[in-house]
């Protein structure tokens, strides 16, 4: 079982720069054909200062942490047993290529279901920009499958 004393613990905060080329590649990877998300001219014509960060890309930037496995290591979770259970974004203001975003993740909750066969880790992350303005709040729920937990 995952040690619930980690609830409330802050994971290391980090900053990530949003890169234009990466956004264009992401647009291609998700089949986004609206040029707003990959063509600087189109983005500017629509009133954006640069390519906008699309709705789910903040989750990707969170994976650019210096140690993306910080949460799994701290809780001693095997990557082969994890599934993504839930994801939430609350948006406060747009982000664009060229922004430098700060991520502040916290372990918000840890709980078990089905007699421990499934464990859930809730991570809440506050994202702000280089001006200290709130950009978004992310909530990620990771499910850990414990085959042995079902027997006990």
């Amino acid at each position: 079982m995952i040690d619930t004393s980690h609830i409330g613990a802050a994971l290391p905060a980090f900053e990530v720069e949003v890169e234009r080329g990466r956004l264009a590649l992401f647009a291609k990877a998700i089949g986004q054909t609206d040029p707003l998300y990959s063509d600087l001219e189109a983005a500017r014509a629509a009133g954006h200062p640069d390519l906008p960060v699309p709705p789910t890309f903040l989750f990707c930037l969170e994976m650019d942490a210096p140690d993306p496995a910080a949460l799994r290591k701290r809780l001693d979770i095997d990557i082969a047993r994890v599934l993504h259970g839930e994801q939430r974004f609350r948006y406060h203001r747009p982000a664009h290529a060229g922004d430098r975003l700060r991520f502040e993740p916290v372990i918000a909750d840890i709980y078990a279901k089905k007699g421990g066969a499934l464990e859930f880790v809730v991570r809440d992350t506050r994202v702000s920009n280089q001006h200290g303005e709130a950009v978004a709040d992310l909530r990620c729920v990771t499910v850990v499958r414990n085959p042995q937990g079902a027997e006990s």
Binding site: I30, G31, Q32, P55, T56, H84, F89
Partner: peptide
Amino acid sequence: GMLSMAYLGRVLTDWVPQSWIEDYAV
């Protein structure tokens, strides 16, 4: 899972400017 969430997000951004989206959860 996040690839499907990105596809689903396109339904929203094809319809309204992204800045109108306040909350998106799956």
